[in-house]
Every structure is written in C-alpha cells, then in structure tokens.
Design a binder for these strands. Structure first.
Length: 567
RNA sequence: GCCCCCGUAGCUCAGUGGAUAGAGCAUCGGCCUUCUAAUCCGACGGUCGCAGGUUCGAAUCCUGCCGGGGGCACCA
C-alpha cells in the first residue's frame, strides 16, 4: 500500500519527467535538452481549490513544454501514463491547458492518520534548513523602560520565526541586544536618581510613572543613597543607574517570559566597549582594526570612517564622533563581527520600519567583514502596529505597555494575532475582537478545534472505543479526504514558512485545518449513535481525530500559543 | 528630492507566474431530543489603485503615474 505524501508525489513526478527528458535526449542526440535538469522544485504538487481537480495537482508539464519543444498537453499525456503507476495513486488526469491532476486511493490517503499519530510532536519537523546555523536578533529594546506595543510584534514574530526555523532543521540562537552603554543609559540613570532622591526631574528626564517606581525601589535597596549623593554625586549616580538598569532588565525578561518569548542570549553592548583583562583592545577597537586591515576604514575631519558605500550604502558612516566617542554604529559593527566569530552563518535582524535606513549600513558591514551579503545577512523590516480601543498607560508615559496588553488580551490571543500577518503588512489590533470567544477571533477558532479533538478522545474512552484496529480504506467521506489532505500539507507548510521566514503561513494553515476538522466533526461521528455497535470505522476515525489534534498542537506550538484540552 | 513598505469584497486581511481571485467579520437566510451550536450550511458581495509591458498564462514580474504610511543624523 502506498503512503503517498505531497513530497513523495513531487519526487515521483520528478523521476518521471527526468526519464522523459533522458529519452528525448537520446533520441535527438542532445540538442535542446542538453542542459535540462529536473528538480523536485519543478514538480511541486499543490492542493487544488476545486475538488474536481483531484487530490494533488502539478503544472510541471506546462513549465517544461517550451523547454522540451513539446505541446503542454502532449507532455502531460506522457507524464500521466506513467504517473498512474505510482503506488497509491488511483487516477492521473489531464485538465485545462496541461495540468496533471492526481487522485489518491482512499487507503493510501488514510494512512496519513496513522503516520501523524506515530510521529506525534515530530510530525511536520523536517530538514529543509538542516546545517544552517542562524542568529536571530529581535526586540533589542533599550533597558530604560518597560516593553511597549512597539516591541510586541517583533517579540511575537521573532520568537515564532525562530521556532519555525528550528522545526525546519536549522540551528537557531535567538538573541536580544541590550543597549546598556551610552547617553540613553545616563539619562535613564539621572532620571531614576532624581526620583529616588525626591528631587525634581531633570529637564530631559524620561517621562512616565515607572521612573518614580524604579526610584522608590532604588531608594529602598540603597538606604545610604542620599548620603552618598551629598558626598559624591557621580558615585551615587553610578550606583542608582546600575541598580535601576538591573531592575528594569529583569522586568523586561519577566514580560517576555509571560509572553512565552524565549531568548537564548542577552548580549550586552557594554562588553563591546570594555577592554580585555590585560589591557587588550576592546571588541570595538579590535573590530575597527580588522575592518581597517580589510581596507575599508579611513580617517577624515578628525573622525574614523568606514567606507560602506563600497557595499551599496548611500553614504559612508562614522565610527567615532569628533570628540573621539564611538558611535552606536561602531558597536553595531563590532556586534556583527561577534556574531561571525561565534560561528553563525546567516544573521537575521528583525527591525521596525522606522529603522529601514539601517539596512544599507548593516549590509555594508557584513560585506566589509568579508561575509556574503546575499546569504549571510537578512534584514526583515516590519510595519508598525495600530491599536483600536486600548487605553494608554500612565505608568509608562502614554505608551501602551506589553504587560497591559497581556493583562487585557492574554498572551495567546496577542501572540496569535501578531503572528497572523506578514511582517511587511500593516496590522491593527482590535481589542474587542481579540477578547471575543467566537469565530471573529481566530485563535479561539483554532483552540476550540483542538479542544474538540480532546473532548472526542474523552468521550471515546467512555464509550469503549479503542485504537485496536485501523482501516484507512474506510475514510472515504469527502470531509475525511479533505481533512487528510490538510494533514498531508502540514510538513510542506512548515518548510515553506521557514524558507520564507513567514510564520503567518502556519496560522493561516491552522485556520484551514480547524475548518476542515469542524466540518468533519459535523459530518462524521466517532462515537456511534444509540444502539449502533462500535466498528472499525469508529476506531479508525478515532485515529484521524488524534491526528488532527496532534497537528493542531504542533502548529500552535510553533506560534507559541497553548493548545488547551478544554475551553 | 532620494529610498523602503502598502493599495485585493462594505470592514480587517490571505493569496511562492497557473484552473471560476479566497477567508473571517458585517448583512440576510437555514440546521440543536445525537461525540461541546464557541461549531456547521446557504445567499449577498470584486474595474485586484490607474496605464503600459513581459509571458501560453499576471493580483503576483518590469516601467511610469496616483493615493496612504515610514525613513533619509559625527542621535541612541
């Protein structure tokens, strides 16, 4: 019996097409087909929208017709005569301008249910990105205040993307860059110190009540602060600033934890400025030296420059200001080199649209450092989020805090909604919709489908239905064929989402899967009615129910959303 | 002025060059003594911003224009 997945169908079609190409080549002695190579990519099958077009469909004949010099329908004819022989394929037909439509035999399709159950949490995981060592940097918000709405989209998207990449076999380190050096930190320190000492806020102080709260905590934990400030203002500032920073960073980590967002590494900018233990140059100095050796650094107007224009940037950038202080960009460059030195191939940056001016210079640093700017660096730019109907936070100075959003909407609804759209698509949060427990709210729709699979499982146990038999040939109801097809698609969805760095594909898929499940549930009973005896069909359907629940769970996990057993 | 993103149903948005462009919401209408009706079924709804081009085939790729958003620091 065939266990036919879309991947296996693509492979089989690729073999058939290769044979046809070979045969033509030997007949025409090379010629036009000389360079022609068929890959699995060329023979991808897709799930047709229209059921009359079979279970799986390929446009390979149309793609290759011109290159082979054969009319598309004629080539399709040659392909289907052999495709009908693929184990598990019941019918192969030509349609329209040259589509190849394949219909699986019922039992082969039904085998999917058992395969999913057997593979469990591993179903859908693959090796499309095996061997890739990826650094994924996102959020990286200044530790001078709470996370707010501007950070939430990148937190959700970045974490989900990392999970999807891992599911496709990549080795991913997710990383948060802490801007804990520089003027913003000093401003933050002065703001908190003033609050702690009950002094009026400095003119350029950070707004928001959280500064006052930090000030109170600093005052409690540093009882001698006022005394110290009288004797040595700078020392007091240092202590207050450092403590406030640690408190704030801990708060940020807590918020991320509640949002189910995990970072492998929190990377401190300070470590880039610090010289070595025995007076070695700091990583920034070392980085500038390395780039100078590569011939990309020059001095002009008392400043050190890097010639990013050699790598497509629209202007050269400075590493030091006139006063000798390193720019933020110098640290960025050193940070990039650190990522290289730590063995990462592709470095992914997830930035807001307000940072799109950074693409040119980041890419240029990659090039200057000797990386391949096509493959070793990816800068994903996301559009900002609008919010309807939220209250602004007084605590954080009229911005909306992540913690408030979590309390208001819950982590699941927020994560799901933010992961549901491509990064470059504008997105609005609608509080009313996200709080609703109906079809308007896609996360509930999907979670409900999962809870239903659990309810069926519980009821089946009560009714004495076990998994002692599995008869896939019985899964022939149209809603069963449809649901099985959805389950077969899942590994391809994960691989595609990973390759394109688009986790929203998973959420869209989950909604389709949930819809297929709900329709099946409505049409096909697992638990017999009345006095009807339990049969193989009921037991086999229980496997299918399990399989649907498993894939819903696997998919929700990639988005970082829980899969409750009851709602 | 230059650069990036967006423009698809009344609304919010999917759509990796393929078949009659989809989903949810909204509106209207159906199905509950049966595994959870938080589900399901049906109807209504389109100049895919506009105009050219490439292609057997374009919402998708290219060019120009229109409209909306963002960015163009020896700031962090």
């Amino acid at each position: 019996m065939g266990r036919v997945t879309p991947q296996e169908l693509s492979l089989a079609l690729a073999r058939i097409l290769t044979d046809i190409v070979e045969e033509r080549r030997s007949r025409t002695e090379g010629g036009a087909t000389g360079e022609l190579v068929v890959t699995v990519q060329d023979t991808q099958v897709e799930r047709p929208k229209n059921r009359d077009h079979g279970d799986w469909s390929s446009n390979a004949a149309m793609k290759f017709a011109k290159r082979l010099g054969v009319p598309p329908r004629e080539l399709a004819e040659q392909i289907i005569s052999r495709a009908a022989e693929i184990d598990g394929v019941a019918r192969a037909e030509i349609a329209g301008p040259g589509f190849i439509n394949l219909t699986l035999d019922v039992a082969s399709a039904g085998e999917t249910a058992r395969r999913v159950v057997e593979q469990g949490a591993a179903y859908g995981r693959g090796d499309a990105l095996a061997g890739q060592v990826i650094n994924m940097e996102f959020v990286s918000a200044n530790p001078t205040g709470p996370l707010h709405m501007g950070h939430t989209r990148w937190a959700a998207l970045g974490d989900s993307t990392a999970r999807v990449l891992r599911a496709a076999g990549a080795e991913v380190t997710s990383e948060y860059y802490i801007n804990d050096a520089g003027a913003q930190m000093n401003k933050f320190g002065r703001s908190v110190l003033a609050a702690a000492l009950h002094e009026p806020a400095p003119e350029d102080a950070y707004p928001g009540e959280y500064i006052q709260q930090l000030g109170s905590r600093v005052r409690e934990q540093l009882p001698n602060l006022a005394e110290l400030a009288d004797q040595d203002r700078d020392a007091a500032l240092d202590q207050a600033q450092e403590l406030a920073y640690q408190l704030q960073l801990a708060e940020i980590k807590d918020s991320l934890e509640r949002f189910n967002v995990h970072f492998d590494v929190f990377f401190s900018e300070r470590t880039l400025h610090a010289p070595g233990e025995h007076g070695e140059p700091s990583p920034i100095e070392a980085a500038i030296d390395r780039l100078r050796e590569q011939g990309h650094v020059f001095t002009e107007d008392d400043a050190i420059w890097v010639r990013t224009t050699d790598f497509g940037d629209d202007k050269d950038r400075v590493f030091t200001r006139g006063n000798g202080v390193y720019t933020y960009f110098a640290a960025d460059a050193a940070y990039y080199l650190s990522k290289m030195d730590r063995g990462f191939g592709e470095k992914i940056y997830l930035l807001g649209a307000d940072h799109h001016g950074y693409i040119g210079r980041l890419t240029a640093i990659a090039g200057a450092a000797g990386d391949n700017i096509e493959t070793d660096i990816t800068v994903l730019i996301g559009q900002l989020v609008n919010l309807n109907g939220a209250r602004l936070s007084k605590r954080a100075g009229n911005i909306i805090e992540l913690d408030d959003l979590l309390e208001w909407l819950g982590a699941d609804a927020l994560r799901y909604w933010l992961a549901r759209y491509p990064a470059d698509s504008p997105l609005a949060l609608d509080g009313e919709q996200l709080r609703s427990r109906t079809n308007d709210n896609p996360v509930f729709y999907v979670q409900y489908a999962h809870a239903r699979t659990c309810a069926v499982d519980r009821n089946a146990a009560t009714a004495g239905i076990d998994r002692s038999t599995f008869a896939p040939g019985l899964l022939e109801h149209p809603t069963e064929t449809d649901l099985l097809g959805k389950l077969q698609q899942y590994p391809g969805i994960v691989a595609g989402a990973a390759e394109l760095r688009e986790p929203h594909r998973v959420t869209r898929y989950l909604e389709e899967l949930a819809a297929s499940f709900h329709r099946w549930y409505d049409n096909c009973r697992v638990i017999p009615l009345g006095e009807e005896p339990v049969g193989d069909l009921h037991r086999t359907r229980l496997w299918l129910n399990d399989a649907a629940g498993q894939v819903l769970r696997n998919g929700l996990d990639l988005i970082g959303v829980t899969a409750p057993e009851r709602l």
